[in-house]
């Protein structure tokens, strides 16, 4: 756990208490989760009570208090994708990788999340894996898409 890096992030935001969410987002982006020591550091350096840091970390969807898998699978459940059959695609993904939304598997291969619109509704239903968008996924196509990841 690289606390120096956390300090740098805090310094980038000039140590202002109001930037606590921005600081936590930067930590999340960098480490892909919020380790406990990092949060304690944020609490000490910004003077934001731990109770609030904890509430922020659990209130906003971007944060995770557990490490994430190597591959982040995002199934879009935006309205456009929903009316084009996204729930069934989600069912299939859940079955194939054995995870529910919000979960990560034990060997940290996949994390599954649902999202509300990736802005490419023309291609719905859409799955995004590690930032790459796969469009027009049918129940059948899901397996091909997922099998490409190790």
């Amino acid at each position: 756990m690289d606390l120096d890096r956390v300090d740098e992030i805090i310094d980038n935001h000039r140590g202002e208490a109001s930037s606590v969410i921005q600081v936590m987002l930067d930590i999340q982006t960098e480490m892909s989760w919020l380790p406990r020591e990092a949060l304690t550091r944020v609490n000490e350096r910004l003077g934001v009570p731990l109770s609030r840091v904890r509430h922020i970390a659990t209130f906003y969807k971007a944060f995770s208090l557990v490490p994430k898998g190597r591959h982040q699978v995002h199934v879009c459940l935006g309205t456009a994708c929903h009316v084009r059959g996204a729930p069934r695609v989600l069912d299939t993904v859940e079955e194939l990788i054995g995870l529910k939304p919000g979960e990560t598997d034990l060997d940290l291969k996949f994390s599954l999340e649902t999202v509300n619109c990736l802005g490419c509704c023309a291609l719905g239903p859409v799955i995004e894996i590690d930032g790459k968008t796969h469009g027009n996924v049918s129940t059948g196509k899901t397996e091909d898409v997922l099998s490409g990841y190790e």
Binding site: L118, G119, C120, C121, A122, L123, V126, T133, G135
Partner: peptide, 8 residues
């Protein structure tokens, strides 16, 4: 280079 076209 919008999100939709990038995805395509």
């Amino acid at each position: 280079a919008g999100a939709g076209c990038l995805a395509s």
